[in-house]
Design a protein around this nucleic acid. Structure first.
Length: 680
DNA sequence: TTTAGGG
DNA sequence: CCCTAAA
């Protein structure tokens, strides 16, 4: 009987999902847990926040010039309170007192190491991570598109899928197809009355033999013209194997990038863990090490890592506003305009006009010379007051973004370039970095030492004091990356004058090095690198921007810095963080629609495997939700729709597919009974 | 783990 | 997106 059912209702050889219970028990009224907002902010978080705000300001001026009014509007809307919040948070006067009090009360020195979570935790995370990395085949944390990773993963998946979904032998495929096709015809509700997809055996084959998906600038979906309808599903507009390889996600693929690819990816130093579970476990960011990462395979970290900042209203707001441009895989405003070019992109013609995109079209530092670190002008000043309560005053005058390499088509607009850079910078700041303190070139490992003990005191010259921002590498001792070469970029010392906090007795310069993972980059891979949704075109020219051009000059006050070490518990409570919102791009929607047309609703896992296998951040639940919203969107008037407009054509397909599959489900509900009766 | 739905 | 009952 089981088989019968399958034959009767299964399309494509997949088992048709059981009919959902019509009566869903009443939804529990769950009250959202109140998320404890922590006031404490680690130093870098705060710095980043401030810097971010500054960047945002910049963004709103020049960069936005090329942005459409609509976009601006959206951005505005999404960041209404950011300035207020941030300003409030960094309010000098308030902070000052608070800090002082904090220090006195807790007798704790300034905590400059955001990642100072204690080694125990780190190790836990590390092990957790390792576990994930090895067992999570569903959501591979390592660079999915690495050849190695991909294949390993594919195998796993294949095996899994095969064993789980092998409901139709290759042999029956043909007859099955015909059978189903006939039914489809009878049903007649299919837009084109085509025969549904074939059998599930496609999976293994797809996974194992399919060449790396093509990645195109705007849509990464391979969209071959439809061929024989009989070979496709009920909505056979595209090839079966169309798989979404959104730059967004597929950015994961260095391996997926083919010569003809015109994807522009960005890789940012701070990697992040893609797995949500992990995220929940971790309060802090950490790096994931990709075992087989090859040199040069830099990955962009995923926005999911941003959580640390996300929590903060300030940051969150900011994020949202920037999400539109995600260095990370966000692509709210992904240039849909570019879509026109994706088809045109071919390996033939322009290949010569653009260089093959490197694994990382855009990445921070970590270049061969490895010399580009983000650096910033820091001035440290020690207070003249002499006592145990003395405070070390530090002021970071500005951040210098590390060397930034960007590859972008010559045809790209200046606006896109700006956005790309913006994203890169944003990603850098928002990534999982931890601050390390260096004194005289030596990293101070003992987080429990007081500044005084360490030699950082108000009475000493802080010439040798430096900070470095590094990825939170899990596999390495908390604050440091062992293998990290003492990489420190000293910035020109600049007299600290703007924000003298207290009667400054002496001013020393400290250098702060933003060292976003460049050091052992080859080992630090983000499971979720994102590519930059930058409009791409036929030719790509390498544009290397002088990092200086990106210098954000947030003259930060000491207070701001000091404001950091307030609460301890903070990050702990940040466990369950909301994932960053990542609007579906048109190409993603297309992939989704296509997959659903073929597989039907109710088989989100398959949809996920089929079309979003590479999009680690898209879970089947996400896809299901998206479908839900798509259906809704399709039903409302265009005026009521928001966000990146989805082509009407797609929406029509959504409705058609939805109608079709709904009908199928309805039928299934009836048939089983009939069959049962017959059998009895 | 997935699905399905409400929030 | 989140959360979770159900399967």
């Amino acid at each position: 009987m089981v088989i019968q059912k399958r034959l009767d209702y299964g399309y494509n050889g997949f088992q048709v999902p059981t009919i959902p219970k019509a009566s869903r028990s009443a939804r529990r009224k769950r009250s959202y847990k109140k998320k404890v907002e922590d006031n404490s902010m680690c130093a870098f978080e705060l710095l980043a926040t401030v810097a971010g705000n500054l960047l945002q300001e910049r963004e709103s001026t020049p960069i936005s010039s090329n942005v459409s009014p609509e976009k601006l509007l959206q951005e505005r809307e999404s960041t209404p309170a950011s300035s207020n919040v941030s300003s409030g948070r960094v309010q000098p006067t308030i902070v000052k007192d608070t800090i002082k009090k904090e220090l006195l009360d807790e007798e704790k020195p300034l905590k400059l190491e955001p990642c100072d979570q204690g080694s125990s935790d780190e190790s836990v995370f590390a092990s957790e991570f390792g576990l994930q990395g090895s067992n999570k085949d569903r959501v591979p944390d390592n660079g999915i598109c690495f050849e190695d990773s991909v294949f390993v993963k594919s195998r796993k998946e294949t095996g899994k899928v095969t064993s789980k979904t092998k409901r139709c032998s290759a042999g029956c495929a043909e007859s099955y197809k015909r059978e189903v096709g006939a039914e489809a015809q009878k049903i007649g509700t299919l837009p084109n009355g085509n025969v549904p997809d074939t059998c599930s055996s496609e999976y293994p084959m797809d996974l194992d033999t399919k060449p790396p998906a093509l990645v195109s600038s705007d849509s990464s979906v391979k969209v071959p013209l439809c061929t024989d309808p009989i070979l496709h599903g009920p909505f056979p507009r595209y090839h079966d194997d169309v798989k979404l390889v959104s730059k967004d996600d597929d950015e994961n693929s260095s391996g997926c990038t083919q010569p003809s690819t015109v994807t522009l990816k960005t890789f940012r130093a701070p990697p992040r863990i893609g797995d949500r579970r992990i995220r929940k476990l971790l309060a802090s960011r950490y790096w994931k090490v990709a075992p087989k990462l090859k040199d040069g395979d830099l990955f962009n970290s995923d926005g999911d890592m941003k959580p640390v900042f996300r929590r903060r209203k300030t940051c969150y707001t900011r994020q949202r506003s920037q999400r539109s441009y995600p260095f990370k895989k966000r692509r709210l405003y992904e240039q849909s305009s570019v879509s026109t070019s994706y088809r045109g992109i071919s390996s033939e013609g322009n290949s010569s006009s653009f260089k093959k995109v490197k694994d990382n079209e855009l990445y921070f530092g970590g270049t061969a010379n490895g010399a580009s670190g983000a650096s910033c002008s820091v001035a440290a000043q020690d207070s003249s007051s002499q006592s145990k309560d003395s405070h070390v005053k530090l002021s970071i005058k500005s951040f210098k973004i590390p060397e930034l390499f960007i590859e972008i088509p010559e045809s790209a607009t200046v606006g896109s370039l700006k956005r790309t850079v913006m994203e890169a910078v944003t990603a850098l700041l928002g990534g999982g970095l931890c601050v390390d303190v260096l004194l005289q070139g030596k990293k101070i490992r003992d987080n429990n030492k007081t500044l005084l003990q360490t030699g950082i005191s108000h009475s000493n010259k802080l010439d040798g004091l430096g900070f470095s921002l590094e990825p939170n590498v899990v596999n390495s001792p908390p604050p440091l990356c062992p293998q990290d070469p003492p990489f420190l970029l000293h910035c020109e010392a600049q007299p600290l004058t703007r924000y003298p906090i207290t009667p400054t007795s002496g001013i020393s310069d400290a250098s702060l090095t933003l060292n976003p993972a460049m050091n052992n980059f080859s080992n630090c891979v983000d499971s979720d690198h994102d590519s930059v949704p930058t409009p791409t075109d036929m030719s790509i020219d390498k544009v290397t921007l002088d990092s200086r051009a990106l210098v954000a000059v947030p003259a930060m006050s000491v207070e701001a810095l000091a404001a950091v070490p307030l609460n301890r518990k903070s990050r702990r409570s940040e466990l369950a963080q909301r994932r960053i919102r990542r609007p579906f791009s048109v190409s993603e929607v297309e992939a989704l629609v296509q997959a659903v047309e073929k597989l039907g609703t109710g088989r989100w896992r398959d949809v996920k495997l089929r079309a979003f296998d590479n999009a680690k951040h898209r879970t089947y639940v996400d896809l299901k939700d998206k479908w839900k919203t798509l259906v809704h969107t399709a039903r409302i008037s265009p005026q009521q729709r928001r966000g990146e407009p989805v082509p009407q054509e797609l929406l029509d397909r959504v409705l058609a597919a939805h109608a079709y599959w709904s009908q199928q489900q309805a039928k299934q509900q009836v048939k089983p009974q009939t069959e049962t009766c017959l059998l009895v």
